[in-house]
């Protein structure tokens, strides 16, 4: 009985250790509402979409959680895809994915914008950013930053740029 108890205890400890291992990297989705304003005051809809309903351009930064605290610090291949709405013909929605060292120093970025001189207030676009395979040191982190142009008037109605959601794939 004693032996059995010892074995069960060890099994429980082993399972607990397995549970404490960092979560495997994988695909994760986030609502735009996760992002914080760098400049301007965004409007958050109940759906989780983040909207620039102001007359000024706006910047937001979105933290990205990674449950890997030991190794590897950064994967070989990572893509962040943002779903945005860009109604403006003159301005673009641009997003930059970044990997930074623990002290905040940018180590690598990937940036993309909606096509220049085109706007659509009805159909969302996806902006895909593939980060170069750099290896941040311990504590390095990822983030997404997006620039949302000011409201524009189209056919008598004010149209807003939107960051609806983003997906992290690795």
């Amino acid at each position: 009985m004693k032996k059995t108890h010892g074995f069960v205890s060890k099994s429980v400890v082993a399972l607990a250790l397995l549970g404490a291992l960092p979560a495997a990297a994988g695909t994760a989705t986030y609502a735009g509402a996760l992002c914080a304003a760098v400049s301007g005051t965004p409007t958050i809809f109940r759906s989780g979409r983040l909207i620039n309903q102001t007359g000024s351009d706006m910047e937001v930064v979105c933290p990205i959680q990674r449950n890997i605290t030991n190794v590897p610090y950064y994967t070989e291949d990572m893509t962040i895809t943002a779903t945005v709405l860009d109604p403006s013909i003159t301005d673009d929605v641009c997003c930059t994915a970044a990997v930074s060292e623990a002290d905040g120093t940018y180590l690598a970025t990937a940036r993309t914008c909606t096509p220049a001189n085109s706007g659509d207030y009805d159909t969302h676009r996806t902006l895909s950013m593939n980060l170069p395979s750099v290896y941040a040191g311990p504590g390095g982190y990822l983030s997404l930053r997006c620039e949302l142009p000011k409201q524009v008037s189209i056919d008598g109605a004010m149209r807003s740029s939107v960051l609806a959601s983003f997906i992290v794939t690795e």
Binding site: T96, A98, T105, L107, A108, T109, R111, P132, V134
Partner: peptide, 20 residues
């Protein structure tokens, strides 16, 4: 130095990947 990449990539006409 910490902000270089972000400031650089905001330049209109520069898009793509950057490594420091």
């Amino acid at each position: 130095r910490a902000e270089l990449l972000d400031s650089l990539m905001r330049v209109r006409g520069l898009q793509g990947q950057a490594v420091m």
